[in-house]
């Protein structure tokens, strides 16, 4: 094994191994925090779900309020950051009728939201039709890094 004693050659080998192991396409983390289906007026705190512990350490749902306005269910969601840097988030509401069937499946858009360090903000959403009886919501980060070396 003469090349072990040869430093430039060893470096070259190490470099090639580094490149082989390095370049991978990493699927972004798309889990977040959210809630199960909530009836208007129901206590929301028992229905929260955490799928992403890292995000849950930086962000928490501080309040969910709902009421009927012009026959339509209006929901206010308060989000509080416990992280010193800005968070690039997206949130989505889903709407269900009284039998638990989803209304307008796949049409509720993810809305972008920038939350500054330690900021609390309230976002609102309105049910698309008067038939909505329950809702659920989900918050996750906007994925940025796709490649890792």
């Amino acid at each position: 094994m003469s090349f072990i004693k040869n430093p430039p050659l060893l470096l070259l080998l190490a470099l090639s191994i580094f490149f082989i192991s390095g370049c991978v396409n990493v699927p972004p983390v798309t889990s977040g925090i959210g809630s199960e289906q909530i009836y208007p007026g129901q206590k929301y705190s028992k229905h929260l779900q955490v799928d992403n512990k890292k995000l849950a350490g930086r962000l928490h749902i501080s309040e969910i309020k709902s009421r009927k306005q012009n026959d339509l269910l209006q929901v206010n969601l308060s989000l509080t950051s416990t992280y010193k840097k800005s968070l690039q988030l997206q949130y989505q509401f889903q709407w269900f009728d009284q039998d638990g069937f989803v209304i307008e499946a796949g049409k509720s858009p993810w809305q972008p939201l920038e939350l500054h360090g330690m900021q609390t903000t309230t976002v609102e959403s309105l049910a698309p039709t008067p038939q909505v009886a329950t809702f659920s919501l989900y918050v996750r980060e906007v994925p940025e890094k796709f490649f890792k070396y």
Partner: peptide, 8 residues
């Protein structure tokens, strides 16, 4: 992809 996802 998800047509409703945030696109940047």
């Amino acid at each position: 992809g998800d047509a409703t996802e945030v696109e940047t």
